[in-house]
Simulated assay, not measured.
Amino acid sequence: MGRKTKVALTLGAAGIAAWATSKAVAKPIPRKAKKALEFDQTVILAHRGGLLEAPENTRAAFSKSAALGVNGFAVDVRLTKDEEILVFHDEHADRTTDLVGKISEFTLDELKEANAGYNFEDENGDHSYRDKEEKVLSLKELLEEFPHMFISINLKDSPETYEGSLMPSKLWRLIEDLGAQDRVLVTSTFDEQTDRFNLYAQSRVATGAGEDEVKKAYTAFTSQFGHLYSPREDLFMIPEKLGIFPLNTEGFIKFLAQLNVPVYFNNVNERDSIVRLINAGAAGFITDRPTFAMEIVQENAGQ
Results as ranks from 00 to 15, higher is better:
residue 3 R to K: 11
residue 4 K to Y: 14
residue 6 K to H: 11
residue 7 V to K: 13
residue 9 L to N: 06
residue 10 T to A: 15
residue 13 A to C: 09
residue 16 I to C: 03
residue 17 A to M: 05
residue 23 K to G: 12
residue 25 V to M: 08
residue 26 A to T: 12
residue 27 K to H: 13
residue 31 R to L: 01
residue 31 R to P: 06
residue 32 K to H: 13
residue 33 A to G: 07
residue 34 K to W: 00
residue 36 A to D: 07
residue 37 L to N: 03
residue 37 L to T: 13
residue 40 D to F: 06
residue 42 T to D: 10
residue 45 L to C: 08
residue 47 H to K: 04
residue 48 R to H: 02
residue 49 G to L: 07
residue 50 G to E: 00
residue 52 L to K: 15
residue 54 A to S: 03
residue 54 A to C: 06
residue 56 E to I: 13
residue 58 T to Q: 01
residue 71 N to H: 10
residue 71 N to T: 15
residue 72 G to R: 00
residue 77 V to G: 01
residue 84 E to T: 12
residue 84 E to A: 13
residue 85 I to H: 05
residue 86 L to R: 00
residue 86 L to H: 02
residue 88 F to N: 02
residue 90 D to C: 06
residue 92 H to C: 10
residue 93 A to W: 02
residue 94 D to M: 10
residue 96 T to Y: 02
residue 96 T to F: 03
residue 97 T to H: 05
residue 99 L to M: 09
residue 99 L to S: 04
residue 100 V to Q: 12
residue 101 G to H: 03
residue 101 G to M: 01
residue 103 I to D: 10
residue 104 S to E: 12
residue 106 F to I: 02
residue 106 F to S: 06
residue 106 F to D: 14
residue 108 L to I: 03
residue 112 K to L: 11
residue 115 N to A: 06
residue 122 D to Y: 02
residue 125 G to S: 03
residue 127 H to Y: 13
residue 128 S to T: 13
residue 133 E to Y: 08
residue 133 E to D: 15
residue 141 E to C: 09
residue 145 E to K: 08
residue 146 F to R: 06
residue 149 M to N: 02
residue 153 I to H: 01
residue 153 I to F: 01
residue 153 I to L: 00
residue 155 L to E: 11
residue 158 S to F: 01
residue 159 P to E: 11
residue 159 P to G: 07
residue 160 E to T: 15
residue 161 T to M: 03
residue 162 Y to E: 14
residue 165 S to I: 04
residue 167 M to D: 11
residue 174 L to C: 05
residue 174 L to Q: 03
residue 176 E to N: 14
residue 180 A to I: 14
residue 188 S to W: 01
residue 188 S to N: 04
residue 192 E to C: 11
residue 192 E to G: 12
residue 193 Q to P: 12
residue 196 R to T: 15
residue 198 N to V: 06
residue 204 R to I: 04
residue 204 R to S: 10
residue 207 T to A: 00
residue 209 A to E: 06
residue 211 E to D: 15
residue 214 V to T: 08
residue 221 F to S: 07
residue 222 T to P: 10
residue 225 F to E: 10
residue 226 G to C: 01
residue 229 Y to N: 06
residue 229 Y to M: 06
residue 230 S to A: 03
residue 232 R to S: 12
residue 233 E to P: 10
residue 235 L to K: 07
residue 235 L to V: 14
residue 236 F to P: 03
residue 239 P to I: 11
residue 239 P to T: 10
residue 242 L to V: 08
residue 243 G to K: 02
residue 244 I to Q: 15
residue 245 F to A: 14
residue 247 L to E: 08
residue 250 E to P: 15
residue 250 E to L: 02
residue 252 F to A: 02
residue 252 F to T: 00
residue 253 I to K: 05
residue 254 K to D: 15
residue 254 K to M: 09
residue 254 K to Q: 15
residue 257 A to K: 12
residue 260 N to D: 11
residue 264 Y to V: 09
residue 269 N to F: 00
residue 273 S to P: 11
residue 276 R to D: 08
residue 277 L to N: 06
residue 277 L to Q: 04
residue 279 N to A: 15
residue 280 A to T: 13
residue 283 A to I: 13
residue 283 A to L: 07
residue 288 D to Y: 00
residue 288 D to A: 05
residue 289 R to C: 07
residue 290 P to G: 04
residue 291 T to I: 12
residue 291 T to G: 07
residue 292 F to C: 06
residue 293 A to D: 05
residue 293 A to Y: 01
residue 296 I to N: 04
residue 297 V to G: 01
